[in-house]
Nucleic acid binder design. Structure first.
Lengths: 201, 201
DNA sequence: GGCCGCGTCTGACGTCTGTCACGCGCGCCG
DNA sequence: CGGCGCGCGTGACAGACGTCAGACGCGGCC
């Protein structure tokens, strides 16, 4: 019997996935959590074989939870499950040791299949998303440019960003200008949006 | 037997909800769609008693689908199901004739209960969301201010907004200034964010 | 009617932003 | 070593942005 931990913030989706998985003869959902910071504590007591983690959760995102989980329980496989394929997430998930990466757009049948594969030691990655990640390539943004764009995304002024990153205002403007050029946008907000969409943040 | 149409863009969630509902003795999911513009055509052939509509869908949002559906098939009850409670959505959903409004944060058990209630003629609204909608009150933004904020949200320049709304640039700046004042923000983007969060758009 | 409040619209003014040109430090390769 | 590319940082300038004061129409109220 495969023991599964289910981490997903929307209770209704979580419950539906639980009943779905419990219908499988060889799979048993041994614990459910709704927050990122509850994953590791729950896993310590439940000792699951597989952890199914959503990325968008309150209390720390699924990537961070995956990192802590693989460190704390190396025998537990991690499958990341997310709403839409930000190729950037895929790369980050792989870096923290996830064994699988599924998108919720896939048919439900793939879920149980993927769980069985990862306990067998395989890696499972959504094929469309893998193609997108390869097609996208690495980010053209430098470290600082990405930092500045992130800070600018929710409407901070140049002065705010300069303070929070300990930079001169002129420097911040320059980074923003570079990022705007590289993304093909015309304003900082547009740049932040396309960078976000392409997984460059 | 209650005939249900299920509209939800994420295939995995849709499939999970379907199996969940099909486990109920008196409920049968008669058709599934993944796009807003497929709702009415599918409903015409399936003739469901209840349509369960997600709001965020490609091909027209769930609110618009609900409006068309209640016009085309007045006997079909509409239940709107959404990820998180934007109180603004609740009001709009009620305006287009929805009989129920659930959030995916609720436990799964409420779903079947709600479906039975709406076919019995009751209205079902998530209680937390109703409280939030009442606590929020009406938007302080005027029509034009909301228009301009919406247009500014994704990084358009003043000139773009002015063209798309057939206004002078000075006027657009003035609306933005008003909106920034009313939202307590300091930039247009911040204003768009808080307005969005409070359901004022 | 006279008045006030409100939403809508416009132009003018100071500040902030985006762009450009340039300097610095560092790793790399001929 | 000298040059070269690259990321990082700074200052100056045109243009866009946010703010202000004001005009017009409209409905409500004394």
């Amino acid at each position: 019997m495969i023991r599964v931990l289910l981490a997903e913030d929307q209770a209704m989706v979580r419950g539906a996935l639980r009943t779905l998985l419990d219908l499988e003869d060889d799979i048993s959902v041994v614990c459910e959590v709704g927050r990122g910071d509850e994953v590791v504590p729950a896993a310590r007591t439940c000792l699951p074989d597989v952890a199914l983690l959503d990325i968008e959760m309150p209390g720390g995102d699924g990537i961070e939870a995956a990192r802590e989980l693989t460190a704390a329980l190396p025998d537990c496989r991690v499958v990341v499950l997310t709403t839409f394929g930000r190729p950037g997430f895929l790369r980050r998930a792989m870096e923290v040791g996830a064994a699988g990466f599924l998108v919720k757009d896939s048919p439900v049948a793939e879920l149980a299949v993927a769980i069985r594969k990862v306990v067998a030691g395989e890696r499972v990655i959504d094929r469309d998303l893998a193609a997108a990640a390869l097609a996208m390539g690495a980010t053209p943004l430098s470290t600082r440019e990405a930092d500045v764009l992130r800070a600018a995304a929710d409407g901070a002024t140049v002065a705010d960003i300069a303070r929070s990153l300990y930079l001169s205002e002129g420097t911040v403007r320059n980074y923003l200008s570079n990022a705007i050029g590289k993304t093909g946008a015309r304003t900082r907000v547009e740049a932040a949006r396309v960078a976000e969409d392409k997984g460059w943040l």
